[in-house]
Amino acid sequence: MQLPEKAIESRYDYNKIIPWFRKKASKFIGKEYVISESEKGIIFALIAWMLKDDLVAKEMNFDLNKGILLSGPIGCGKTTLFKILRYCNFPAAKYGIVSTRHIVSEFMREGYEILEKYSNGIPYNNQQKPRYLCFDDLGTETSSKYFGNDCNVMAEILLTRYDLFKEKDLITHLTTNLSAGEIESQYGNRLRSRMREMFNLFGYEESSDDKRK
């Protein structure tokens, strides 16, 4: 996602917000947080989404009623970025972050009730409503067996959350290293089709630097 060539009308002053964000991010990670040229558009759009800035959303062509699917190569900083946004306490950054591997591990131990737990959500701040969740590293989990029954755990969870997205405006976020074709291969065309309705796609370039180095 690229920054627009012309200035965007907004009720927020991003010339102040971006430096503040970098300062908070640097504090969170314990070193200077560097924003590369290739990710400026992604970070700008993500902050606008977390602020629910409808003017920027319209200009940059993303939907505030959809969640975010953040894709990119290993180590480009997808998970850290979602953690920083939550740390900054933006108005719409009220979500839990859980790795898909952790969910599958829970499923292997506890069975099908785990599908219900993450499909319908966990109450957030004692509010009895489905919790917004960011599922981290979609694709790193594997199809699991529980007492011999094959179950594509994340596919089942996401299909149920799609229904809740349609019925109750439930927001889900994802990070993944997978391409669109790999998502379809691993989770099926039925889910991929629904994901187009559920998510704005924000993607890092394949050449993005590994920030773990």
Rank of each mutant, 00 (worst) to 15 (best):
G139E: 12
K23Q: 10
N177Y: 03
V56K: 01
I17A: 08
E32T: 15
L81A: 04
S193M: 11
R109F: 14
V98H: 09
K145I: 00
N200Y: 03
K83G: 08
L115N: 06
D136N: 13
M198A: 11
S26P: 06
R11T: 13
L70H: 09
L174S: 13
K78N: 01
I17E: 06
T172V: 08
P4D: 07
A92I: 00
F135S: 15
F147Q: 06
I84C: 13
N65Q: 09
K40E: 03
I17M: 04
Q128S: 14
F28S: 15
L70D: 07
Y112E: 14
F135D: 15
C134W: 03
K6R: 09
W49G: 06
E59Y: 10
M154F: 00
F199M: 12
G72R: 13
Y124K: 01
G121T: 03
L174E: 07
D209E: 12
G41I: 01
G121S: 15
K145N: 06
D169S: 15
C151A: 08
D63F: 13
E59Q: 12
G75Y: 11
E106G: 12
L64G: 09
A25G: 03
A93H: 12
N189D: 10
E167H: 09
V34H: 00
V104L: 03
G148R: 11
D136W: 04
G188L: 08
Q186L: 15
I29P: 12
R11D: 11
I122T: 09
R22C: 03
W49Y: 14
K58A: 11
E39P: 10
D54S: 14
E113M: 08
T172N: 06
Y162H: 06
F135Y: 15
L46S: 06
C76L: 03
R196F: 15
N200D: 07
I47V: 05
Q2I: 04
A48C: 02
